[in-house]
Design a protein around this nucleic acid. Structure first.
Length: 449
RNA sequence: UCCUCAGUAGCUCAAUGGCAGAGCAUCCGGCUGUUAACCGGAGGGUUGUAGGUUCGAGUCCUACCUGAGGAGCCA
């Protein structure tokens, strides 16, 4: 069947996800052949259409010979349009089967160059090299649907609370924080960089609009090589005028609860396809445990004394990955660690008035060892102190002139946080690695496809 | 950048220093309820690259390449 003759089926089109609504009716399903089992004069093709899988049944004596022959020996991932009657069947994984009465093969995959991803085991490198095809696997498609739901839920959460979406630039003239490595870009013979955070810019839009958020890609040229890192990832960052650290923590807690609840409500079958332990997600509700950095340090030192942690933690350093894993393992909800030493944190964080050596900041650590999914703080409101910090961090004051203006013209206490979408998706889906949470991950050793 | 591990058929893996193999995939044949279907048969290899040790290297040694896991850094 030619590709330009793909609209000849007469029965109404149905999606596999909603096939149950058509029980007893004849429908058209447009998709691909996922797998084929043969048993003599019976064929069991499994079709997928992007919404789910359904097994078809074709008996040789029940259909015209050309229909049977078109499916017999058909290759995996050939595109097909099938017409058949929906029948409830307890033996079928989805509850329904399709008694096929007509088939159009839109494009037959050549048997001399078969679809490379079989329903068997494959290694990570093989699958990553074929990421454009791997996305067709039921598990990968389910993850992408959960990702889309999390993004939509995050935007709904802020939109419903009076936040305005304000998009910061992706091309920036200088380092936002100065510490991490940036991707350089030639901008009409001027040096520019891909953004590593929209935060400084949304502080400006927050002063204009009150409550704002950004949602977009960010880039880090760090040579990180772990299951938690991508060089290109997406962040949602709220920023609120007249907000303190407690407000920031409450907002972060509310967002996470909202996201988890929404996924359980709307993407339950996808979470089941992925194999997520749902009981662990059902425990996620406010309030989350809040511990100070001082308390976290004591937990880590006690853990070392008991032999539960290899290295002994000294007050003053940033929490390492094994430290975060240990702390989060002590709770079955996300844990909020606040008030880190100012010297290990970014220059723009407001000092704690009670203890000026501490910053009014918070990291939210996801349970089950997923580590930091949110980092936030109250921002420094004083012009003079901010100038001092910029110099202390060795940053060029000239590049931050506009940012300092925000403290000259009606400075107010304000704060916000950034949530890494991929880390949130990895945690909610229970994945081993963030590379499966984005259609085409960009990593230290991965720029293709 | 550092530490650890891996690289053998299209894929996933096996092979004590002694004939390079299995399952799946592909092709041929069989099977009217298969569930990663099964049964029989066929084709399929420069063992990551370059050197070295040895009568003999997939296996041991050296260097390099590629990838994975972790550290640091971070979301």
């Amino acid at each position: 069947m030619a590709i330009d003759n793909w609209k000849s089926m007469q029965a109404p089109i149905a999606t596999i996800a909603e096939i149950g609504k058509h029980e007893g009716q004849t429908v058209t399903v447009r998709g691909w052949l996922y797998n084929l089992r043969e048993s003599g004069k019976l064929l069991f093709p499994i079709f997928r259409d992007g919404t789910g899988l359904i097994q078809g049944v074709i008996a040789k004596n029940a259909v015209p010979a050309e229909v049977f022959d078109a499916v017999k020996g058909l290759t995996q991932e050939s595109s097909v349009i099938v017409e058949g009657k929906v029948r409830a069947d307890k033996r079928a994984p989805g509850g329904y089967e399709l008694d096929v009465n007509n088939v159009q093969v839109v494009q037959r995959v050549s048997e001399s160059d078969p679809y490379p991803i079989t329903p068997k085991e494959h290694g990570v490198d093989f699958l990553m090299e074929r990421r454009h095809l791997w996305l067709r696997s039921p598990r990968q498609a389910a993850i992408l649907r959960v990702r889309a739901e999390i993004i939509k839920a995050a935007r709904d959460f802020f939109d419903e609370r009076g936040f305005t979406l304000t998009d910061p630039p992706i091309l920036t003239p200088a380092a936002c924080e100065g510490t991490t490595t940036l991707f350089p870009v030639d901008y009409f013979e001027e040096q520019a960089y891909l953004t590593q955070s929209g935060q400084l810019y949304i502080e400006a839009t927050a002063m204009a609009l009150g409550k704002v958020y950004s949602f977009g890609p960010t880039f880090r040229a760090e040579k990180s090589k772990t299951r938690r890192h991508l060089t290109e990832f997406w962040m949602v960052e709220p920023e609120v005028a007249y907000a303190g650290l407690d407000d920031v923590m409450e907002l972060a807690e509310g967002l996470i609860c909202f996201l988890v609840k929404r996924c359980l409500e709307r993407r339950l079958s996808d979470l089941q396809t992925i194999g997520r332990d749902l009981a662990k997600l059902q425990k996620i509700e406010a309030p989350f445990p809040r511990i100070t950095y001082d308390e976290a340090v004591k937990m880590l030192q006690d853990a070392h004394a008991k032999g539960a942690l290899e290295s002994n933690f000294e007050w003053g350093g940033d929490l390492g990955s094994p430290d975060e894993t240990y702390i989060s393992s002590q709770f079955d909800k996300p844990v909020m660690v606040h008030r880190y030493p100012a010297k290990v944190k970014a220059f723009y964080m407001e000092p704690d008035p009670q203890r000026p050596d501490l910053a009014l900041c918070v990291d939210v650590l996801a349970p089950e060892g997923y580590g930091e999914i949110i980092g936030g703080s109250q921002r420094m409101a004083s012009y003079d102190l901010l100038v001092q910090r910029i110099h202390q961090h060795g940053l060029p004051e000239e590049a931050f002139k506009w940012y300092l203006d925000l403290r000259k013209y009606g400075s107010v206490p304000h704060g916000g946080f950034g949530m890494g979408i991929e880390r949130a998706v990895a945690w909610i889906c229970g994945l081993e690695h963030v590379r499966e949470t984005i259609p085409f991950p960009r990593m230290l050793h991965r720029l293709y496809p």
